[in-house]
């Protein structure tokens, strides 16, 4: 699927440059900024995940967050996802590595979903904008829905792969 991403980016970049070189330059500058900002945490996380995955026997990963870990694994994945702050940049490669080394599909989907939608660390910030009532409700609903997403993704992967 990599070629698709490159193709899409190439086409969009071309269209954008044709429409407005100015804006395109701004976008590229932003991209460079993002890349520079993301590189340190990306390297750190991937290094640590890679070495842990390489060291931990697959059996250990599988027993914690594998298919067989069931609901316990999903709860564990949801807690890690809610408490940590990782950009998608880092989370997806990490999920890929874990999936290739014994992690379960449902558990990874729950992890990714809570990571994106539930933010314990950012809750005070969210509350400063919308108040605690809104913040708790939004995060709470997103937390529970993440298990539904886990089930849906698990089902889809079972059917189509």
């Amino acid at each position: 699927m990599t070629w698709f991403l490159y193709l899409a980016t190439g086409v969009l970049l071309g269209v954008s440059a044709a429409a407005s070189p100015e804006k395109t330059k701004k976008a590229l500058k932003k991209a460079l900024n993002t890349f520079v900002n993301i590189l340190p945490p990306l390297t750190a996380t991937l290094l640590l995940v890679s070495i842990s995955v390489a060291l931990l026997p697959e059996k250990v990963i599988a027993s914690l967050i594998g298919e067989e870990s069931g609901f316990f694994g999903q709860i564990l994945a949801s807690l890690i996802g809610s408490l940590t702050l990782l950009p998608g940049f880092v989370a997806f490669p990490m999920a890929k590595v874990l999936l290739e080394h014994g992690a379960g599909v449902a558990q990874m989907a729950v992890f990714v979903s809570t990571l994106m939608m539930v933010g314990v660390a950012t809750a005070p910030l969210e509350a400063s904008f919308f108040g605690w009532k809104v913040t708790l409700l939004r995060n709470g609903m997103a937390y529970f829905w993440s298990f539904g997403i886990g089930y849906a993704v698990w089902l889809a992967v079972r059917i189509w792969i």
Binding site: T2, L5, Y6, A8, T9, L12, L13, S16, T24, K26, A27, L28, K29, K30, A31, L32, T34, F35, I38, L42, T43, L46, L47, V49, S50, V53, A54, F89, P93, K96, V97
Partner: peptide, 18 residues
């Protein structure tokens, strides 16, 4: 594992959308 997973092009897409 590290080498395979560092992809940069996504930043360009985000910048364009923004």
């Amino acid at each position: 594992l590290l080498g395979v997973n560092i992809s940069t092009i996504i930043g360009i897409l985000l910048g364009l959308f923004d």
